[in-house]
């Protein structure tokens, strides 16, 4: 439904997108996730035809967003960030105006406005001026306007930004409902939001796609590299086996490093124990049994051996950190905050 191929966007003094490619198949809710300045809004503005890419191309429902912009725009319902609206217009007046812009006839406009006001719970404020509404209501008006012409593709930029928890829950529910008959591309910098509402996640950082997959795929990818944490009794004097050597010798282990145990043991109970993080090689499989056996054979006293469950948040933070590190080393001057 949406195809982005090698999309780049450069401004006078910085590059906002560098070779972004992704597909959004029909009927999916796909989340664009990334920190502020990752290039999410720029990507969305290119997808919606607000501005063209500097390089590459985007097509929506088979229409190129530059060459066949009007056709592409007709297939999209777009809620920009912060839902910009005309404060002097009434809710129904605004929906009617958007319907006219979308070239809907009178009957379709009335039908569409009724359906969207019901879905977004706007009936009780239909005659009110938009400027008098709360932020949550304004967001819903923007959403209603986006889905008014029943577009095949809905593009929502930070749809829950600034909403209270109850409104967030409602918007989330609505987005899931919309997925049944729309393709939805939603951007957010709030990770749980994306994790809860999206079938697929595209993680962006510094204008690049850093990861793309379902939340479980991404977590699974991360899990295969999650370290094993082993707490062993400290050696007395120089006797006994060295844990770094014992665990480092286990096949499938990439690295072993010592970590600090958080100060939570009662009566200094932790002073006799040390924690080791054993990092497995990619696709090494489950090493818990092998590690436990190696510890037993070397007479290491183990009080805990577990593997930390990976989360999307860890993956997200790791990718961002990696990117920041890489950027510090390699980023050229002139790299600025992206839009």
């Amino acid at each position: 439904m949406i195809q982005a191929r090698n999309v780049s966007k450069s401004y006078a003094r910085f590059t906002a997108l560098r070779g972004v490619s992704f597909d959004v198949p029909s009927g999916q809710v796909v989340g664009l996730l990334g920190p502020n300045g990752a290039g999410k809004t720029t990507t969305i503005r290119i997808v919606t035809g607000f501005f063209p890419p500097t390089g590459g191309n985007v097509s929506v429902c088979g229409f190129d967003t530059v060459e066949q912009s009007i056709h592409a725009r007709r297939s999209i319902g777009y809620l920009p960030e912060a839902a910009p609206l005309y404060p002097e217009m009434s809710v129904e007046g605004y929906l009617d105006y958007r319907g006219r812009l979308m070239q809907m006839d009178r009957a379709a406009r009335l039908r569409g406005a009724g359906r969207c006001m019901d879905r977004c719970h706007l009936r009780d404020v239909a005659g009110k001026r938009i400027g008098q509404l709360s932020k949550g209501y304004k967001q819903r008006v923007g959403l209603a306007a986006a889905m008014l012409h029943n577009p095949q593709v809905l593009v929502l930029d930070e749809p829950v930004s600034g909403l209270d928890p109850a409104q967030i829950r409602e918007t989330r529910k609505l987005m899931r409902e919309l997925a049944s008959d729309h393709t939805v591309l939603v951007s957010s910098h709030i990770l749980p939001e994306v994790e809860l509402t999206c079938d697929r996640v595209i993680i962006m950082a510094r204008g690049r796609v850093r990861a793309d997959g379902t939340p479980s795929e991404l977590v699974g990818r991360m899990s295969s590299e999650a370290p094993y944490l082993i707490e062993v009794r400290k050696r007395t004097g120089v006797s006994g086996a060295q844990p770094a050597v014992v665990f480092g010798g286990v096949p499938g282990v990439a690295a072993v490093r010592r970590e600090t145990i958080p100060e939570e043991g009662e009566g200094g109970a932790n002073q006799f124990w040390e924690r080791w993080a054993v990092v497995p090689q990619p696709r090494a499989g489950d090493l818990r049994e092998t590690l436990a056996r190696a510890a037993g054979e070397s007479a290491l006293v183990v009080r805990e051996l577990h593997r930390e469950g990976a989360t999307l948040e860890q993956l997200f933070l790791r990718l961002i950190e990696e990117d920041d590190g890489g950027a510090t080393a390699a980023a050229p001057s002139g790299e600025g905050p992206s839009r």
């Binding site: 009007i70 725009r73 007709r74 812009l101 923007g142």
Partner: peptide, 10 residues
């Protein structure tokens, strides 16, 4: 910012 929904309409 209302220019954005306006210029992304057909």
């Amino acid at each position: 910012g209302t220019i954005e929904p306006l210029l992304t309409a057909p």
